[in-house]
């Protein structure tokens, strides 16, 4: 068994075990039989949303675990594609400005009070923002095959959306309730996510992962340089367009359902590339699995140990020093 396959199996087992733990722990007087009963009824469509046990397990915990797995996979998988596209192991999916585009439209909706119409409004608005950012990036990608230009355009787009978000917040500076709502959303959270969120996120993230995997060979070719890639049949412009689309679907879907989550898309693919090499055929799925496992561990811990801390804060808090440690660990062998 290859190291990639072995790691994939280990991560799948860990994800399954963590999933069982995440569904099993939490508030409420629920023993194993009640939890299994709720899952069983849910699976055959005979759950009762008005039953407290079914509500806790089938309507809150199970979809939350699935949404966390999806988002973790999307961000880390999107990170692997971004780093391959820009041939830069320090690239993060947020450099394309997708998440900040999503955040800007979501914050605009919060300012206008649209979120009061229902819990589906903010994810839909965020997805709209991500789609608009994607449209702008695709328009740019169709004009250039230079990934550096695309990268800089993404950075500029992200900066513009970030500034526009700050502008909205500054104009509404006297509305402290809005500030709290925006801060909560920007910090990234899975609080109250249910089946509607899961279905809404599964479609773009599933499409994004399929598209990303279909680009694995072309991204490998791109790593050899534009000319070599073109000679191997991987047009840099076409690869760029498709890679940007897949990253937008992954990051846009993740941001829409969970808000802005930092560092997973940077750290996880970086570690996987370090341990397994740069072949995207294994890099993308292993990164996705790794991201899913890490995010589920973080979310389960924050949910059980401290309800006040959203997981987005923890990923950023742990991600930065972890990344520094990895960089130092990578530098050590070279100096010997």
């Amino acid at each position: 068994m290859s190291p990639a396959r072995r790691l994939g199996v280990v991560l799948t087992i860990v994800a399954a075990l963590l999933g069982i733990v995440a569904i099993g722990v939490g508030p409420g007087d629920l023993d194993v039989s009640k939890i299994l009963g709720a899952i069983g009824r849910g699976l055959v469509g005979r759950d009762d949303p008005s039953d407290l046990g079914d509500a806790l397990v089938w309507w809150l915990r199970v979809p939350r675990v699935l949404v966390v797995l999806l988002v973790g996979a999307a961000l880390a998988g999107g990170g692997a594609v971004t780093q391959g596209l820009f041939r830069n192991p320090l690239a993060d999916p947020s450099v394309l400005g997708i998440s900040l585009g999503a955040a800007f439209v979501a914050v605009l909706g919060l300012l206008m009070g649209l979120d009061r119409a229902g819990i589906w409004v903010t994810p839909v608005l965020a997805a709209t923002g991500a789609a608009l950012a994607l449209a702008i990036l695709l328009a740019l990608a169709s004009r250039t095959s230079d990934t550096t230009t695309l990268l800089l355009a993404g950075v500029a787009l992200g900066a513009t959306c970030g500034a526009a978000t700050t502008c909205v917040l500054a104009l509404a500076g006297d509305r402290y309730d809005l500030g709290i709502r925006v801060m909560r959303w920007l910090m990234g959270s899975f609080e109250g996510r249910s089946w509607g969120h899961f279905i809404g996120a599964a479609i773009p993230i599933g499409l994004g992962l399929v598209l990303a995997m279909s680009q694995a060979r072309d991204l490998d070719a791109l790593a050899l340089g534009d000319d070599v890639a073109a000679s191997l049949g991987a047009s840099p412009r076409r690869v760029g367009r498709r890679a940007v689309t897949s990253v937008a679907l992954l990051v846009g879907g993740a941001t829409a359902v969970a808000g802005v989550l930092g560092f997973l898309g940077l750290v996880v693919p970086h570690v996987v590339r370090w341990r397994l090499g740069g072949a995207h055929r294994s890099l993308i799925p292993i990164s996705a699995l790794g991201g899913a496992v890490i995010l589920l561990a973080v979310d389960t811990w924050t949910r059980v140990a401290t309800e006040a801390l959203p997981p987005g804060v923890i990923t950023s808090l742990l991600g930065a020093p972890a990344f520094l440690w990895i960089l130092l660990a990578q530098a050590r062998p070279r100096s010997q």
Binding site: G26, P27, E191, E307
Partner: peptide, 22 residues
Amino acid sequence: HTTIGVETLVAWDPEYIVVSCE
């Protein structure tokens, strides 16, 4: 004032829940 998850709210199962509106 503090923050709790919706799971905790459901587990408490209060007879009344007060929310703000405009």
